[in-house]
Structures are given as structure tokens and as C-alpha cells.
Design a protein around this nucleic acid. Structure first.
Lengths: 223, 223
DNA sequence: GGCAAGCTGACAGCAAGCTGACAATTCGGG
DNA sequence: CCCGAATTGTCAGCTTGCTGTCAGCTTGCC
């Protein structure tokens, strides 16, 4: 069974947390989220993560303390520390507590993702960023698609469609939204173009992968 | 720290250079110093270092350009980038150019040393000089290319292209990305220039070495 | 039954990519 | 500093295969 890249995002500000989740899952990570230090410590200590994104200002238990306790227990997963406090002492402290990288707020999500990827690449060897739903798996690094482990060849457009559905696998995606994502909304296309792509994909993937909910949109089955 | 770690410090401001030297050698590093980009590039390309501390604002050849040229040539030593320019684009750019860590000026020497140590610890040993993918092998030290052990003569540009593909052999590399790394994006080239280089390389290497995934990019086969 | 949403196979247009030739540029040697 | 050779960018024409459109069909829903 193939493994996802699991990342633990520890962040109490709901707005930032939401952005984190969006950016990281778009990058192919499976995101677990925790909003307080105690819970975060427990999760990080008992489960396996490929990366932790850790905010320092936390309720219940300070981020630095969490990190130190992990390291004291021999946990070695890469940790990317976020902090609003920008003093150099803090940074040194963070690094000496065992942080692998450091990002001062405010930051751009693009930068966070770039660093997260770099950390994971350095740490875990070249593990693939796999996203799964039912029998289908997407390798967002290789841009590859597989069905029950068997590679399936798809075109660039088809891939983008699958990736988008995967990213929003918790809900049916309306055709209008897909059209806008695949083509710019400036570029006017017959609505049928999308259906054609779906049809071709279904021919390649067989039944039971892409589902339709009439009036709502498309979704990946088994997610 | 009794180990004999060689670090290359690239910095043109004499005052900072002096501080760097003091702090790093106090921390147990053997420090080589270079004050201009050309020289730095040459040193980093021909000698073995365990770490490079690289300032971005340099005379003769910009720091980012130096870094890109190293990476394009397959040099993989850890690089810690220093910069006065603090915009997030710059940081992303730096990381994508292959930097392993980033430190905005002004900074404290304590912090630099902490990060330097962390980088070296993470990197562990020296990077391999020979990289392989399928029948193809690159000798990153003498910039040589061989196919099934038989040397093949390639030009500098062709070599940089191969080295880049080799460095990212786990995914198809889109033409836009290759163009940007081979030439600066400032220098506008016809998109066709890349295809010409690919064609010439394929003529030299034969089929089954450089593959194309239409809409995704180029890749090295058998990797 | 009727309507709207969605499906499908066929097909033509088109864009991505390839190639060979040639011109511009670079580079090393005298 | 100049010349010849190697390298590299540009162009035109070509191949390939992706993808939008169309016409006609099925399915679900009122």
C-alpha cells in the first residue's frame, strides 16, 4: 500500500490554518491539523509524519516546548517553524531546539510550500507525493496517474482535471468551476468540452472512478 | 567540534567578511574566502566544500547566478544564502535556485553559525560526483558525459541541460522551466531554441535517453 | 411525456514538438 | 586583431496526437 506524504500543521489562527491546509494539500500533502500544543505533541509523538509545520504561539503548550519534547523522545521528523516574533534569539533558540527550518510571519504560501518540499526531499529521500482516492492515485511530483497501482497514461489537460477533483475530493465540483479552472473564464468554450474530457478519462479509467451527481458536479469515487 | 569542515564564504563587504571568518573559524570550520562571483563560482565548481555561505549582492557575477550554475553543473553541497533584499519572491527564487537555507541581513553571527552547523549535520557526507540515469552517466567533476560507459562529447549548454534533467530526474521538467534555467528569463529567446538543443542531444545520444511527455516536459528515461 | 443535464463516437483543426538548413555568435589560436 | 571552427539561435516546414465541436443519444426528474 502506497503512502501519502503526511504533514502535521500546528496553527491556532483559523484563517492561517485554512490557507495552510489549502496550499499544502494542493502541493500533494495529506494534511492533519491541530490547533493546540498538547494535542499537537500527542499526535506528533504517536503517529508518523513526513513533516511538521509548527507555529510557535500556541495555547496550552508553547510550540518550542512541544518541539523540544519531541526531540527529547527521539522523534526526528523535519520540523518547519513559523513565528511572528522575529528576533534572532528566537530563531537560534528554535534551531537549537531541533527545528530544521524557520519562516517568519508574514510569509507567502508559495514560499512555505517551496520550503516544505525542500525539507521533505532532504529528509525522507525521494519519497513520492501521492494522493489517493479509491483505486486512483496521483503522483503530483511525477505528474503520473495510477489505477490500483497500474500506471495509466493521461494527457496534461486530463491530469489537471484529475488533480483538481483530487484536491476537492470532499465535495462534488460543479462543471462551471471546472471549466473556469481548466481554461480561463475569459476564454469561452462550449460547455461540452468538459464533458468530452470526462468521457475520455472514463474510457481510460473504467467505471467507478469519476462519479457524477446530476446538478451538483463531478467527484472521485471512494474518497 | 574537531572535524575538519571546509566552508566557502562568498562576501564582498570586507567588514562582514571579516566577521564571517572570525565566527566560522571559531566554530571549528576551515574558511576559504572569496569576494567576487566569478572566483567563487570557479572555486565552488572545482573544489570540494562541506558548506557554502553565499551573499547575493556580488560584483562580477550575481550570487543567484553562481548558485544556479553550480546546481546546473550538478554540484550538490549545501548552500546558505545571505541577502539584504528581503522580499518573498527573492527567497522563493533562492530556494528554487537550489539554496538549502536562507538568512536575511542583518543577522547575528550566532544565528549564522547555528544554521551552518545544522546544514552540515543534515548534509552528512560529501555528494557523489557520478550521477546516473538509465544508460546515461554524468561526471559532475570533469563535466563529462558517458553512454553505457562510452564517453560522449557534448557542449557546455548541452551539459547544463543534461545536468538539470539529471538533478530533477524524478519528474518531467516543463520547457518553461528549462528555458529559465538555461538562460535567464530576462534574456528572451524563441521557445524553439530549447527544442533545437534537445534535437542535437538526441542525435548524439540516440533514442531512449531523453524522453518527452507532451504537455508535461522532458525527462531522462530509465530513472 | 417532455425537458434538461449529461454521455459518446467521429472528426477536423490546431498546437506542441521535431528536424534540417542556415545565419549569427562565440572562442581559441596564431 | 583576425581567421576559421565550433557552438548556438532562428526559421520554415513537417509530424503527431491532443482537444473542441458537433450530432445524436441516454438518463434522471418533474
Amino acid at each position: 500500500m502506497t503512502t501519502d506524504m503526511r504533514v502535521l500543521a500546528v496553527e491556532d489562527d483559523p484563517r492561517i490554518a485554512k490557507d495552510l491546509h489549502a496550499a499544502l494539500s494542493a502541493a500533494g500533502f495529506r494534511v492533519e491539523h491541530s490547533r493546540d500544543g498538547e494535542e499537537a505533541w500527542f499526535l506528533g509523538d504517536t503517529e508518523e509524519f513526513d513533516l511538521v509545520v509548527l507555529d510557535l504561539g500556541l495555547p496550552a503548550l508553547d510550540g518550542l516546548a512541544v518541539l523540544k519534547r519531541w526531540r527529547a523522545n527521539g522523534r526526528t521528523m523535519p520540523v518547519l517553524v513559523l513565528t511572528a516574533r522575529g528576533t534572532w534569539q528566537e530563531r537560534v533558540e528554535g534551531i537549537e531546539a531541533g527545528a530544521d527550518d524557520y519562516l517568519p510571519k508574514p510569509f507567502r504560501m508559495e514560499e512555505l510550500v517551496a520550503r516544505a518540499r525542500a525539507l521533505v526531499r532532504r529528509a525522507g529521500g525521494h519519497a513520492a507525493a501521492l494522493q489517493e482516492a479509491g483505486d486512483l492515485s496521483l503522483d503530483t511530483n511525477r505528474m503520473g496517474v495510477a489505477l490500483r497501482g497500474v500506471p495509466v497514461q493521461v494527457t496534461a489537460l486530463e491530469y489537471r482535471l484529475l488533480a483538481y477533483l483530487m484536491q476537492h475530493r470532499d465535495r462534488p465540483v460543479p462543471p462551471t468551476e471546472l471549466l473556469e479552472h481548466l481554461y480561463g473564464d475569459d476564454d469561452a468554450r462550449e460547455a461540452n468540452a468538459l464533458e468530452a474530457v470526462i468521457a475520455r478519462l472514463r474510457r481510460k479509467l473504467g467505471p467507478g472512478v469519476i462519479g457524477t451527481r446530476r446538478g451538483f458536479g463531478y467527484y472521485l469515487e471512494g474518497a
